[in-house]
């Protein structure tokens, strides 16, 4: 936990990290089915951070933030936020190859779109399956906007605009992972807005009660 803010007690923090672990595990299995790769998982982390510091916290983990491939998808329901799936720039070509999309003849202009399409699909699978599973386990519904994919961009503050206000806190769940014998490393961040805290605490209390 960051910033010495304790919106969640230790048990709730542990449960949110475990839910992320379960949800991302499911998402990874779905991706592995589609492109026949293995995904190495790591331990998810929960951080409570001021929205104004979000960029710095993301940059602590993602060393290639100045030029990256990014899939952004917003979700809304009792809880709301934004998911960011981040890969190093250059990996779009490896994904195209993994999806066997490089076997077709394309002129350069079309090929760019193929890279974006493929990254969007990876985002759809990883983000969609992960968020669905977390909120399914918490028995709460969310709806999504379509994924927005950027190739070779700097991750900037404007990606956070419209979702959060500067003085608010964000509940940031993130996990790192690697694909195919560690040739591609990536991160998934689920950044929930401060108004998600009470619905999340209520959903966690219901989850705990289901095990009593």
């Amino acid at each position: 936990m960051s910033d010495n803010v304790n919106f969640f007690n230790d048990e709730e923090t542990d449960a949110l990290q475990e839910l992320m672990n379960i949800a991302f595990g499911q998402a990874a299995a779905e991706l592995a089915e589609v492109i026949d790769i293995s995904v190495t998982l790591s331990f998810p982390k929960l951080n409570i951070v001021k929205v104004s510091d979000l960029m710095n916290h993301i940059a602590d983990d993602v060393k290639y933030i100045n030029k990256c491939n990014l899939v952004e998808q917003r979700y809304k329901g009792d809880t709301g936020g934004v998911a960011y799936l981040i890969f190093p720039h250059g990996t779009e070509k490896e994904f195209v190859s993994m999806f066997h999309m490089d076997e077709e003849d394309n002129d350069h202009e079309v090929f760019i779109d193929v890279e974006r399409e493929v990254l969007s699909e990876v985002g759809n699978i990883l983000i969609g399956a992960c968020i669905s599973k977390i909120f399914d386990l918490l028995k709460t519904n969310v709806t999504y906007t379509p994924p927005h994919t950027m190739i070779g961009h700097k991750f900037e503050n404007h990606f956070l605009k419209g979702c959060f206000t500067g003085e608010d806190y964000a509940i940031m769940l993130n996990t790192g992972f690697s694909l195919s014998e560690k040739t591609i490393e990536g991160y998934l961040f689920l950044v929930n807005c401060q108004s998600s805290i009470e619905p999340l605490k209520k959903a966690l209390a219901d989850l705990f009660e289901s095990y009593e």
């Binding site: 475990e18 379960i22 595990g25 299995a29 592995a32 089915e33 998982l41």
Partner: peptide
């Protein structure tokens, strides 16, 4: 485990685990 990939399950069963159960 949360890691429910087929490749993981195969690795685990090859190591002679009795069962491979999915979290939660």
């Amino acid at each position: 485990t949360a890691d429910i990939q087929k490749s993981t399950q195969e690795k685990i069963m090859a190591l002679d685990a009795k069962k491979f159960l999915k979290k939660p």
